[in-house]
Design a protein around this nucleic acid. Structure first.
Length: 181
DNA sequence: CCCTGATTCGC
DNA sequence: GCGAATCAGG
């Protein structure tokens, strides 16, 4: 398994809210990153959260919020980004994408980069083996994940893995180019 | 074949 | 406690 991504308080909190919100184990696993749906289900049971029930026809007061408010979606988007940040690995160091990206300067290779990350999916469409690199501002409804094909064993596609994982020596030099988009 | 959660059991 | 393997389904 990926080192550094254990059941931190933050990840457990996100698991709780997504599970209680009716998300499937596989989707939750994809959003957390570094865990399989089995791990999620196992954790759900150990937390005593199993037996999620939203029976049609029963008291709908708490359960029947058909659709989350925009504020709730934003909250979850932020929680996802925060809960995903892995610990640094031995040689490679991981620089998690900022939750609040700086305003984008006119990037020189904007078109090339846009091609490389053209997929773009919402949290709901994010599946296992999809790149979880956040795109845009998580406080807006336009927030997306890259969604490209993730490298096996990593949460990012080739393009974003290059940005996220860099030898320490190259970090300074490449910092300028490593922004969003 | 895609997916779902539940359970067991070696670690 | 953790989660892969497995089971039992939709």
């Amino acid at each position: 398994m990926e080192a550094g991504l254990s059941w931190t308080d933050e990840r457990v909190a996100l698991l709780r809210r997504l599970w209680e919100d009716g998300q499937s184990a596989s989707k939750i696993a994809a959003q957390l990153g570094g865990v399989t749906r089995n791990a999620v289900i196992g954790k759900v049971h150990r937390l005593g959260l199993s037996g999620r029930v939203v029976k049609p026809g029963e008291d709908a007061s708490a359960a029947a919020r058909a659709k989350p408010t925009q504020a709730e979606e934003i909250e979850i988007a932020i929680a996802v980004v925060e809960a995903q940040a892995p610990e640094p690995v031995a040689i490679l160091s991981h620089r998690p994408a900022p939750a609040f990206p700086p305003p984008q300067p006119p990037a020189p290779a904007a078109e090339l980069v846009a091609l490389a990350v053209s997929e773009r999916v919402t949290i709901m469409d994010l599946r296992d083996s999809m790149c979880r690199w956040p795109l845009g501002d998580p406080t807006t409804p336009e927030f997306r994940f890259c969604g490209g094909r993730a490298i096996t064993g990593l949460p990012y596609c080739t393009h974003h893995a290059q940005i996220a994982y860099q030898p320490a020596a190259e970090r300074k030099r490449d910092r300028r180019v490593a922004g969003f988009r």
